[in-house]
Amino acid sequence: MSVPREGHIVRRYDGELSHLHYLVLEMGALALTQVKDARDALCDRDLTLAQRVIAREKDVDACELRADSEIVQLIALRTPVGSDLRLVFAVSKSITDLERVGDEAARIANLGLQLLGSEGADPNPVLLHDIASMGALAVGQLENALRVVDRWDRNLAEDLLEAHEELDFEFQAAFRRLVTFIMQDPRNIGFAVNIVLIIKAFERIGEHAQNLAEYVLYQIAGRDIRHRVEP
């Protein structure tokens, strides 16, 4: 199903709804770039890239503001109901989540600056290994989530939701590894804390990606499936 479904008697309404959809995708693309750049900055030890990520954070915020005002306007003027209402709601929630994703990316970039920018000791490359794998997972999930939002694809969304444990497992594993590192050499503790925060941020990004898929499912099926995942 292509969403937003066209065919309103007021054709401009169709346009406004698809514009909302477009805004989500635009903001999603921006957030994805941020996450990718933050990861690359860490992996390639590129401090300027990290700085650029931090500087671009305000673009994401601006995007959210713009989307919010359009949503409010649409609600006021069109009072959407039924699937349109669910679409607007899903878009609104997605925007919030994407903004958080942007925040997380900025935080990763900040943490990267702390991690790599400090004079003196350089972190053990082995420590950075987990960052790369967690980052790859998070970026993958976000990409998939955006694909879901783009095509409004129910099966893709379900697959994505099924994969939600991967990041969790990965995070637990990485965490355990870091703990062992700390126990081997207490001097690593400063780096390790930073790295935990970073991989936690990646894990959060993954969760936001899951949320996006849930909103899409809500829009399509009309059922709220959030929080049903937790027992």
Binding site: G7, H8, I9, V10, P80, G82, D84
Partner: peptide, 9 residues
């Protein structure tokens, strides 16, 4: 119903 209430009628 959906078509009617959302104005796609």
């Amino acid at each position: 119903t959906e078509d009617y209430i959302t104005g796609r009628f």
